[in-house]
Simulated assay, not measured.
Amino acid sequence: MNRRSLLVLTTILSLCGSAAAQEFPARPITIVVGSSPGSATDALARAVALEVTKETGQAVIVDNRAGAFGGIAAQFAARAQPDGYTLFMTTNTTQSANPHLQKKLSHDPIKDFAPVSLLTKGYQLLVVNPKVKANSVAELVALAKTVPGKLNYGSGSSSAQVATELFQQMTGSRFNYVPYKANPPAVMDLVAGQTDLMIADLATTLPQVKAGKLRALGVTSPQRLPLVQGVPAIAESLPGYEFGYWNAVYAPAGTPAPVVARLNALMQSAMKAPAVRHAAEQAGMEVALSTPDELAKFQLSELHRWGQIIKTAGIVAE
């Protein structure tokens, strides 16, 4: 094949790809989620699915595949046909934390996926049981240093655990880690006084704060959050502290670029819908959109950051 023929063939394939992307989707799309129904990611996926259906006229199905800290869903999505009809809505757990926390993964969070779009960034709340004699971050740190390793913190997610590990590293305090399978039961034990403190998502902790069952000391965002009025940012007494979680959408690696671009446009449109934005804000998240390339760069930086915190904390992969 000469150069001219190759150029013609390339042009034809490009035009075909663009045409296919313009017609996409031509059938239902499945969004795979690595958590159970009712979780923050599941709620976001269903809100996005509704908006994409409205725009395209095609059904969007949310497929919950909980287990292995999102690993079961990640493996399924990574092995799906790279045609844009199977998407993976996930968090930093599978894409940034698990590679440092698990010895063996069934997927590669970088090589096995084509980034589509970042969706949201969420922040957490530092809460204590009312019996703990600390009404501020500074008082908690002072208390912890008088009884090193005596205060127990619960965690049912990588975000909760690593956020607390970072807090310890930056303050020189030391807590005793109590693992849970999920944040809700960890919060219930905190309310019952089985543990002393926790840093977890607002959706799980804020209702308990409003009910007077937990005391909020600080948010992990750089500035105060309107959703938690009167609660300072941890950074106000611990400069530089910031920690959160994020949601993003990926397609299987090898998905054609024009289809990825179309999916990105659909995600951007869905996330701008008032209903979706409101749902995100009520869960303590903010809409944070990106291009596929921006998501790829962001994920790499997060993968490095989480790795550094986990290594410094001495957490051994299991």
Rank of each mutant, 00 (worst) to 15 (best):
P232N: 08
A182V: 00
E139R: 13
A270R: 00
L197W: 05
A265G: 09
F243C: 00
F175V: 05
A73N: 07
S35G: 12
A74I: 01
P82C: 04
K103L: 09
V219N: 05
V209L: 04
L266Q: 06
S155M: 08
V127D: 12
Y123P: 11
A257C: 06
F243I: 01
F24P: 04
V147E: 14
Q102H: 12
T205Q: 14
E165N: 06
Q102A: 11
V137A: 03
V137T: 12
N135S: 13
T291V: 03
A40K: 06
S136Y: 05
A275I: 08
P99K: 09
Y250H: 10
T90I: 02
P274L: 03
A200R: 05
N183I: 00
M285N: 01
V127K: 05
A20C: 11
Q194D: 13
S157H: 03
S290M: 08
A26V: 14
F24G: 02
F167M: 09
N129D: 12
F24M: 01
A192M: 11
A114W: 08
K104G: 07
G230V: 10
N64D: 14
G38Y: 05
T93R: 10
S173P: 08
D196S: 11
N183S: 09
R3S: 12
L7K: 13
L206E: 13
L87W: 00
R46K: 11
R262Y: 08
K54Q: 15
Q223K: 14
Q208S: 14
Q194R: 15
Q229M: 06
Y123G: 00
S269Y: 05
G34W: 00
A275F: 03
Y241A: 09
G84I: 00
T10V: 13
T90H: 07
S221H: 07
P274T: 02
D63L: 11
V178Q: 11
L143Q: 09
V162T: 07
L118S: 15
